[in-house]
Design a protein around this nucleic acid. Structure first.
Length: 879
RNA sequence: GGGAGCUUAGCUCAGCUGGUUCAGAGCACCUGCCUUACAAGCAGGGGGUCAAUGGUUCGAAUCCAUUAGCUCCCA
């Protein structure tokens, strides 16, 4: 028996249908004759848990997939996870530490064993959570970036790009994370404005008592200074050109160099040069052949090159150096200063620019097709405003540092020979490495080879995602990759446009000679009610699972979407999911109403039903057409809002109220069956947004066989609609609202019948009168003016009267009408002004002018009618 | 410092090619209703100098310029 509780109980419903969908393999996809529609999921971190960003992102993907499925496409949504080397390794290190185990006490193999155990235990929780959301992924295709096949693809790409000459080993200044002890890419550094101190320090000219003042925010790096630099045209320092200065504390004698790079207006106009600890100084060092002295260890403490404060942390050393400068009288003054400080995205410690030996990928040439094909819209970014940013980035692309000093990840396939960093081979595996090495050193054995310790940047594997999930790197001609590639839509956050999206495009053109996807839908960032980014540390992020438990997955999906225009951030508030839940409840109760009606086959269809049915068909078709357009433009929130209003306002508040049989009576068969069809269409329209409740009610609506599902039905389609019918119904709605308003003002109970007078000889809304009569509770309609005192109103150019002798307050009515006359007269004046303007008549298009004339005539008609009414009221009064 | 974008009702946002879809939607708010689907509801209602100024035009929320405020990206 059907559960007809007045509240929709989503809990059992949602679990029941997800199992049903899985049992019948509705999500699985194999290449066939149909057109494919493919999305690859942006793989979340393997150890991650679901947050609101994922909720938004995956709701959108599921909507797109379900919409495509209902359009007969062979839909394939590939799920998976990313190994996320830094994030995961940091978590494993922290977990081991809590057990008293230091990473440094473990061998690489031991550590990786722990890491894999962690992955097996915590990995993929997030995918399970996505099921609760209703995500219709093809789970059999679940992919992990460190699966054996995937890893092979990554290594293959490294070897291939090396052989093509794109990968090289270089010594560069890189962003060093002293906690994770690894290099980071520029994109993994977050800059924040901070208050800091600018120290003014004396640098004495060698052999004199003269000094040049130098301003620095990092006095501890003084210990690694190897030059002083001034602008060549700076008059203050011209006399020192060619001389040498003595570095404070360490007393090293270094040259004074000149370079236009120096900004004479900043600080004192003199720049201390520390090539080992500042990217700009590094460039200067290369240019001027300066020595480079690295004074830091990899954990951010000072090393023996610093000479002082060896072993002290960099920030402590800063204080100590400043104190020592003060003591020696070398510190002139300090000033407060605001500068940008780089932080590690993962460990949140301050980044240290550091010289190190890393692997790089040359980007300029590879990026070319990726730039072109976005600029010419071969790949569309949605919204297109991101094209500018994309262009700027791709035109200034720098070589990509792809090595990371970590263990969790794809180990770099480089084998050094006899521990010589200059002598190495690049190979797919150890065996091949040995063969290659033997060509150089015939007597070599496996023990003479030593594999590079580093792993590859995580993005160096995820940039292959749309290809590698279909095994297209290793088997470029396999049926899957040929069928599913290029994929259709990618849904992701704008913050990883360069990290990930741009690089996938690059890899796509390099390895498939084609784009990886046609459209990139960039979602906004989910923020809280007052605009702060949701984060664990702020504690302002609701737990999605908890939300779904309280409001239902459908409710949360609706809530997320109601406020998420593409590319704009959305300010999430729990009240939105409440709105989503309330909508579920509305749908449920509308269903209950219909289901509780009893049909009498002998009743003829009443007139009000006939016209309601006709009208609803128009508004339904109109919405279907609008929704289609919205989807084409990826305006999913608007599509949902269209359907929401169609269901709540047009269907529930108007249509059902019109056709609802009077108390105790039954409904005619024709209206009932049409209504069931309408409800069915509404469910199908809603299904991509609210998969669970629509599946449930679709099954309750009529008998379905096992294996049937709403997700495999056709999405409603419409070609046209009758706008006049809709406009007429809008007019009828206004009339009904006016009458209801009069009832409430005059305290006339809804159940009391009243008559309606219409001052019109050829009335255009005759067919809608049965509806007006029913909803406004009118007992008779007369086409004339009433002879007794009445309240009147205008809809369009037609006057309506409700005779209400004792209820009418003449004074009030006179005032109301005078106000209306004044309004229309003002309106008339402005139109006449326009029409008397010759420029307007001659320059504006004909249709616009005609329209103005019509407006003018309508206004005159209305004013005349109102004036007559006014006269009559006044004469009544004088009697 | 360089670049991009935004500013419309209390909040979140639509508003496409300048003109009847032009000042809109949802939520929130106010008033009255526990009316026989739904109070997670029903009926009705109020609310905006379209950031400011100037320009183009017969006509500007819409196009141009300047200013202010906010956001993001890059250095």
């Amino acid at each position: 028996m059907i559960n007809l509780d007045t509240k929709y109980q989503f809990q059992e419903v949602e679990n029941k249908w997800y199992s049903y969908w899985l049992k019948h393999n509705f999500f699985s996809s194999k290449p066939d004759h149909r057109e494919p529609y493919t999305i690859v999921i942006p793989p979340p971190n393997v150890t991650g848990v679901l947050h609101m960003g994922h909720m938004l992102n995956n709701t959108i993907q599921d909507i797109l997939i379900r919409f495509a499925r209902m359009h007969g496409k062979n839909t394939c949504w590939v799920p998976g996870t990313d190994h996320a080397s830094i994030a995961t390794e940091a978590k494993v290190v922290a977990k081991l530490k809590s057990e008293g185990i230091e990473k440094s006490s473990l061998t690489r193999e031991e550590f990786l064993k722990h890491a894999w155990e962690w992955k097996e235990k915590h990995g993929g929780i997030i995918l399970e959570q996505l099921k609760k959301l209703g995500a219709s992924c093809d789970w059999a295709r679940t992919c992990f970036t460190m699966d054996p096949a995937y890893s092979e693809s990554v290594i293959h790409v490294f070897v291939d790009l090396y052989n093509k000459g794109y990968i090289y080993k270089g010594t560069r200044i890189v962003n060093w994370d002293p906690q994770a002890k690894t290099a980071l890419s520029d994109e993994e550094v977050i800059y924040r404005q901070e208050h800091s101190t600018l120290y003014f320090v004396k640098y004495f000219i060698d052999g004199t008592n003269d000094y040049i003042p130098v301003a620095t925010t990092r006095p501890e790096t003084i210990l690694g200074d190897t030059a002083l630099c001034v602008h060549p045209n700076d008059e203050r320092y011209k006399k020192y050109h060619g001389k040498k200065v003595i570095i404070p504390l360490v007393n090293r004698v270094v040259p004074i160099i000149t370079d236009e790079y120096v900004d004479p207006t900043f600080g004192t106009g003199a720049l201390k040069v520390t090539p080992a600890h500042d990217p700009n100084d590094y460039e200067l060092g290369l240019k001027h052949n300066l020595e480079s002295i690295d004074v830091l260890n990899d954990d951010g403490t000072l090393n023996e090159h610093a000479q002082f404060f060896i072993g002290k942390d960099r920030f402590e050393a800063r204080k100590l150096v400043a104190e020592e400068l003060q003591k020696q009288g070398l510190l002139i003054k300090t000033e407060a200063y605001i500068n940008n400080v780089g932080y590690s995205e993962r460990t949140h410690v301050i980044i240290e620019p550091r010289i190190s030996s890393q692997w790089f990928l040359r980007m300029k040439e590879l990026a070319q097709p990726a730039l072109e094909n976005v600029m010419n819209d071969n790949i569309k970014l949605i919204p297109p405003k991101f094209k500018n940013t994309y262009k700027h980035w791709m035109e200034n692309v720098k070589d990509w540092c792809i090595s990371r000093q970590l263990w969790w990840g794809h180990r770099i396939p480089v084998w050094y020979i006899h521990n010589n960093p200059q002598e190495f081979v690049v190979a797919h595996n150890e065996q091949e490495a040995l063969e290659k090495a033997k060509k150089k050193f015939p007597n070599i054995t496996i023990n003479d080879l030593y594999q590079d310790e580093d792993v590859l940047d995580t993005w160096f594997s995820s940039w292959l995602w749309p290809i590698a999930v279909f095994d297209g790197i290793r088997n470029p001609n396999n049926p899957d990759i040929r069928y599913y590639y290029p994929t259709n839509d990618l849904v992701t956050a704008p913050e990883i446009l360069f990290f990930w999206v741009a690089r996938m495009i690059i890899a796509g053109y390099e390895y498939m000679n084609d784009k990886p996807f046609r459209n990139v839908y960039l979602t906004g960032i989910v923020r809280d009610k007052i605009g702060r980014k949701m984060s664990k540390s702020l504690g302002n992020s609701p737990d999605p699972i908890d939300l779904m438990n309280r409001y239902g997955a459908d409710g949360v999906r609706v809530g997320m979407l109601l406020c998420s225009p593409a590319g704009n951030d959305l300010l999430f508030d729990e009240s939105l999911t409440e709105q989503g839940r309330n909508f579920s409840n509305k749908i449920w109760n509308a269903f209950r109403l219909i289901k509780l009606w009893e049909v009498d086959e002998h009743i003829e269809q009443p007139d009000y039903c006939k016209h309601a049915v006709l009208w609803f068909e128009q508004i339904l078709n109109k919405t279907i057409i609008n929704v289609k357009e919205d989807f084409e433009k990826y305006r999913l929130s608007e599509a949902l809002m269209e359907i929401y209003k169609l269901f709540w306002d047009d269907f529930a508040s108007w249509y059902l109220e019109i056709i609802k049989p009077p108390y105790g009576e039954k409904i005619d068969k024709t209206t009932y069956s049409v209504t069931l069809n309408y409800f069915d269409a509404l469910l199908r329209l809603l299904h991509p947004f609210m998969p669970f409740i629509t599946e449930e009610l679709w099954h309750q609506l009529s008998h379905r066989n096992d294996g049937e599902t709403i997700m495999n039905t056709q999405y409603p389609h419409a070609e046209s609609f009758n706008q006049t019918l809709i406009a007429h119904m809008d007019e009828a709605k206004n009339i009904i609202a006016e009458i209801r308003n009069i009832r409430s003002e005059k305290n006339i109970p809804n159940k009391d019948f009243i008559p309606l007078f219409i001052n019109s000889s050829v009335y255009h809304l005759n067919s809608l009168l049965p509806i007006i009569k029913k909803l406004a509770n009118i007992n008779e309609v007369a086409f004339s003016k009433p002879s007794v005192l009445s309240v009147s109103f205008l809809v369009g150019v037609v006057e309506y009267f409700i005779p209400l002798e004792k209820h009418v307050n003449i004074e009030e009515e006179v005032q109301k009408i005078e106000k209306e006359i004044a309004y229309y007269e003002g309106f008339l004046i402005s139109i006449e002004k326009k029409l008397n303007n010759e420029q307007f008549i001659s320059k504006a298009p004909k249709t616009v002018v005609e329209n103005e004339i019509k407006k003018k005539n309508d206004a005159i008609t209305k004013i005349q009618a109102l004036k007559i009414q006014l006269e009559q009221l006044k004469s009544t009064k004088s009697i």
